[in-house]
Computed example of a mutant assay.
Amino acid sequence: MTLLEGRIAIVTGAGRGIGRAHALELARQGAKVVVNDFGVSLGGEREDSPADAVVAEIRALGGEAVANGADVADFEQAAAMVDQAIDTFGGLDVLVNNAGFVRDRMLVNTSEEEWDAVIRVHLKGHFAPLRHAGAYWRAEAKEGRQRAARVVNTSSGAGLQGSVGQATYSAAKAGIAGLTLVAAQEMGRYGVTVNAVAPVARTRMTEGAFDTSQMAEPEDNAPIVAWLASEDAGDVTGRVIEIDGGQICVELGWAHGPKRDIGRRWRTDEVGPALRDLIAEGPDPEPVYGAR
């Protein structure tokens, strides 16, 4: 029996790159997969969705898959996508939120439209499928049919350490890391684990932004996601895992550091010296990607 035999999964943004690799690996491990891809160019224009091609690849491997063209940031379309998995395969066990795009620009050159588009696709595009999948898993648990459900979100080193020229993308990916932590706590009672990966790979999103010649392949990320999607991963939740080729790293994120309590309200003239002392006591922050 393969690792994900009989499990039912949705992978968003699965037509190309990292999402495609996830969908194929989940299928190789025995999962039935809803392959979601909205079908847009890097510039945001609609184009033919590659989801059907990925479904054909999965079926050629002997697996089961169906295509889905939902805009995952549309609340009702996200609900219909979850319903498609349930109606087609009889349930849902795994949600891999991967869909996204970039509008890289220095902060002072970023337009309101660019900000709204990136935040919508990444952050709302994670919330909407998670919201509907979570409601299904809660209902199943209340009916005595609790599933060993798994969510794998997609953050980024840009969201964890920051990235020059990617303020909007970094903000969205940081939000996804925060969403992951809260969802893991709230949904654990229903048998759901929620983790995030921060993948590194050469894809059409990264090509052209910087030198990608030495970057890892999309397929390097898929085995980690496949394991997190398994029943065996039930003791791992609320984690963000960075993947860079053969290296995996458990990110530590924000944590309480040095502190001082004077037992009363601070005077303004006391704040500067105290904060400088506390900063000196703690570790230096990770450098922002692209900083010099």
Rank of each mutant, 00 (worst) to 15 (best):
A216I: 04
R276C: 10
I243G: 02
Q185I: 12
A209Y: 06
A274Q: 10
G191I: 08
A183C: 07
R264A: 07
R239F: 08
P223L: 06
N221G: 07
Q214F: 14
G191S: 13
G191V: 06
W254N: 08
L179R: 01
M187C: 15
V194M: 10
A201R: 05
A184I: 03
L275K: 08
P287N: 03
R265Q: 09
G162S: 01
I243A: 07
T206K: 09
P223S: 09
V240G: 04
V194K: 05
G175H: 02
E251L: 15
G246V: 15
L228S: 04
R260Q: 13
V250Y: 15
D235K: 08
A216H: 01
G245F: 10
T206G: 05
E186Y: 13
A209D: 10
R267N: 08
D261S: 09
D284N: 13
D261H: 05
A222C: 06
P287G: 05
P199W: 14
S170M: 01
E186V: 08
W254H: 10
W227P: 02
R189S: 13
V236P: 12
V182D: 05
P258D: 06
G191E: 10
V200L: 15
A184E: 05
V236T: 15
G178P: 03
R260M: 12
A171T: 04
P199T: 14
W254Y: 06
A280D: 14
G208R: 06
P258T: 01
E286V: 14
G246P: 00
E207S: 11
H256A: 14
G175V: 00
G245K: 04
V236A: 13
A222E: 00
A167S: 12
G188S: 13
D220G: 05
N221F: 04
T193H: 12
A171F: 02
P258R: 08
D284R: 15
G178A: 05
D277L: 09
V164T: 01
Y169M: 06
D211R: 00
R260G: 09
P218C: 07
K259M: 10
Q161N: 12
G253W: 04
G263W: 04
N221Y: 03
G246R: 12
A274R: 08
G178H: 03
R260I: 00
P223R: 02
V271D: 00
